[in-house]
Amino acid sequence: MTLTATSFDWVRQLVHRESAIVLQPGKEYLVEARLLPMAQQRGLSGVSELVESVRNRPDPAVTRRIVEALTTNETSWFRDGDPFTALTSTVMPQLVAARRPDERLQIWSAACSSGQEAYTIAMLLSDALPNATTRVSITATDLSREMVERTRAGRFSQLEVNRGLPASMLVRHFTRAGNEWEIAPALRRMVTASECNLAAPLPRLGPFDVVYLRNVLIYFDLPTKQGILNRVRQIMRPDGWLFLGAAETTLGVDDNWERVVLGRGSAYRPKKGA
C-alpha cells in the first residue's frame, strides 16, 4: 500500500512542528522508505496505516520515533557539545570532591537511542578520571528494546562514527569489527542498558548524580512533562545535575528546579526543600 497524500501531509506537518525541518513534496519515497520498517515492526501493512493508528491513538513515543526516523539518520556523539563540556569542567570535579572515594558516581542517559550519549560520557570520563571504569556507572535506558540491545552491543556503523565523534577518540576507544566499529570492552562495562518508559512510573533506578534527559520532553504535553520531571527528581541526589536539550527547560513546567548557567549552556538542579 502506498503513502496517501493525507498521510504524507500529516507527517510533513508533524516533522515541521517538531524539528522545523521542511519535507518538500516529492519526498514521499523518503517517508515511505524510512517509516516502513517501523510500520512492519508494529504489524501494520504500510506507512499510511501507521499514520492512521497514531492519529487515532496519539502516542508521543511513536511520534518521536517518526520524527527521528525522518530527521536524523544517526545520532551525533557530541550532540550540542555544551552538556559534555560542563560534565568534565564543572560537574565531575564538584561531585568527585563531594563524594567518598569508594562511592560510585551514577549517571543516567535517559532515552539513550543507540548509545552514543552513554558512550560519549564513558569516553570523556575515562579520559578525565584515572579510575573511571570502577568509579562511575552509567545507566542507559530507552523505550525501545531494539535501541537497548543496540546500546548493549556497543557496535556502530561507519556512518554513525562519522557523526561528530573526534577521530582521536575513535582510534583510542574503538576497534574495527568488519565494517563496523566496536567500543572498548572496559567502556562497555561502564554502561548498563535497560528498557524504561519515562511517561510511566519508573523502575528502581538511581539515585543519580547526573541525568541526561535531552530532546525527550519536547514530544510530550505539559502534564506528562511535569510527571516526568517529578519522577526524575525523585531518583536524583539532592545535589545532582540535570541536563535537558538545548530547546528544553523546566521553567514554566516544574518549579522544583533551579537553573544554573554552565559555560554556554545550562543545567538544572533540584531546589532545596522542594
Binding site: Y29, L30, A33, Q158, N179
Partner: peptide, 17 residues
C-alpha cells in the same frame, strides 16, 4: 558485508533515499 557497504555508500554518496 559488501551489501552493508553499499547500504552506507548509496544514501550518502548517490543521494538521500
Amino acid at each position: 558485508t559488501v551489501q552493508s557497504i553499499c547500504d552506507e555508500v548509496w544514501p550518502s554518496l548517490v543521494g538521500d533515499g
